[in-house]
Design a protein around this nucleic acid. Structure first.
Lengths: 206, 206
DNA sequence: TACTCATATGAACATTGTTCAATTTAACTC
DNA sequence: GAGTTAAATTGAACAATGTTCATATGAGTA
C-alpha cells in the first residue's frame, strides 16, 4: 500500500478522464443547453464508453450536478472579487458582475436554477448551501450601510435584492421572451438599484 | 355540406377528447412537474391511443404549449381582476395576486417559464405576447402615479418591477433552494414594494 | 511472469417520444 | 338501410436515450 501523496497511474487516468467528461459536458450545456446533453455524445467526445461515465458519476444527474456545482463556485469566486471598499459601489458591482456572468454563461446558470432531479431525489445540500452563500454576499455591505437595522432584516433584504436582480436578469436574458440587449439590461439594473437604495435611505453617490 | 354553427358528432368527440387530454396533462404537470409528463400516461388516463394525442396536438410539445397558453391566460385573467381604483393598491394587488397564483400553481408556472422546445424551434408568438401583456399590466397604475415620466421609462419600469417580483417569488418558492413560507413571502414582497415605491417618490399609503 | 482485482467496455435492456400502415367509424349518397 | 368514401383511430414498430451488467482489459503486486 503506497503513501497518500503518491498518485497511481490509475488515479491519474481516472481524474484526467473525470476532468475531460466535465469539460465536454459543460461545453455542450453552455453551447446548446441542458436538454442537448446526451451521455453518448459526451462519451464519444471524451473517447470512452458510456459505462465509464456511469462509473465516474453514478448516473447522468451526477454529471449535471457536478457541472452545476462548478458553475456556482465560479460565480461565487467572481462575486467575491468585487471590491469592498465602498459598500455602495460593492452593491452595484455585485449586481453588474452577476449580470456579466449570467450573460456570458446563460445556459450554465439556467442549468443550475432549472434542473430538476429524476423522481424526487433531493438536490445536493452543498450546492444549495453555495447558492445561499452567494445570496449572502450582499449582506456585509448592507450591514455597513444600514447599521441600525437588525440582522434578520438585513438577511431578508439581501435575499430580496438578490432575487430581484436575478429575476430582472434571467427574464431579461430570456431571448425567447423579451431579449433585452445586455447593455440596456445593465442600465436597467443600475436604475433599479438607484431607486431601491434611494428607498432605503441610501444615496446612490455613483 | 352542413352549415357552420352545426357541430358534427366527429367534432364533438374531437373537442371533448382535446379537453380531456389537456385536463389530464395539466393535472400531471401541476402535481408532479413537467418532467413527469409522459405521452403514454396521458393516453391511458384519457382512454385513447398515443396516436390520438399526436393527431390532436402534432407533437408532445404541442400539449405542453397548450397547457402553458392556458396557464398564462388564467394568470392574466386573475391579474385583470385586481381593482384599479387606487393605483398604489393596484400595484400591491398585482404583486400579491401573482404570488397567490404562483404559490397555487408553481409547477404550471415553472412549465411556462422553463420549458425549452426540442431542437431550437421558436416559442409560439402568441404565448410570448400574452406574457408581455401580463407584464404590461403594471403600466397603467404607474402612469397615473408618475404622470411626468415618459412612456418608454414607464414601460421599462413596469417590466423591471414585474421581473423583480417574479424573481423574488420564483426563487422564494423554490423549495429545494430556499423555501420561504408563503406568508413570509407576502411580507417580503410588501416590503419590497414599500421601499421601491418610496424610492420612486410614491408614498405607500397602505 | 503469473496472479489478482479494480476498472473499462459496449451489447443489451428500459423508457419514452414518434411514425404510419391497417383498421374503424362517422358522414354522405342512393 | 346498405354501400361508399374519407377521415379519424389504433397500436405495433421504430428511434433516441438513460441505465445495467457480464465480460474483457490492464494496473498493481509478489
Amino acid at each position: 500500500m503506497n503513501n497518500v501523496q503518491e498518485e497511481s497511474l490509475r488515479d491519474q487516468k481516472k481524474s484526467r478522464r473525470r476532468r475531460q467528461i466535465l469539460e465536454i459536458a459543460r461545453g455542450i450545456i453552455a453551447a446548446k443547453g441542458l436538454r442537448s446533453l446526451k451521455v453518448r455524445d459526451v462519451a464519444e467526445a471524451v473517447g470512452c464508453s458510456v459505462g465509464s461515465v456511469y462509473n465516474e458519476f453514478g448516473d447522468f444527474d451526477g454529471v449535471i450536478l457536478t457541472v452545476n456545482r462548478e458553475t456556482v463556485q465560479a460565480l461565487t469566486a467572481r462575486l467575491r472579487g468585487v471590491p469592498a471598499e465602498d459598500p455602495v459601489r460593492q452593491l452595484y458591482g455585485l449586481a453588474e458582475t452577476y449580470l456579466d456572468f449570467f450573460a456570458g454563461h446563460a445556459n450554465l446558470l439556467r442549468s443550475l436554477f432549472e434542473h430538476r432531479m429524476e423522481d424526487d431525489r433531493p438536490y445536493p445540500d452543498d450546492i444549495l448551501q453555495m447558492v445561499m452563500d452567494a445570496f449572502a454576499l450582499m449582506h456585509p455591505p448592507l450591514v455597513r450601510l444600514l447599521p441600525d437595522a437588525d440582522d434578520v432584516k438585513i438577511a431578508l433584504l439581501s435575499r430580496t435584492l438578490f432575487s430581484a436582480v436575478h429575476g430582472i436578469i434571467s427574464l431579461g436574458l430570456e431571448e425567447r421572451m423579451v431579449a433585452v440587449p445586455p447593455q440596456m439590461l445593465r442600465q436597467q439594473i443600475e436604475q433599479f438599484l438607484d431607486v431601491h437604495l434611494g428607498g432605503l435611505g441610501i444615496l446612490p453617490q455613483r
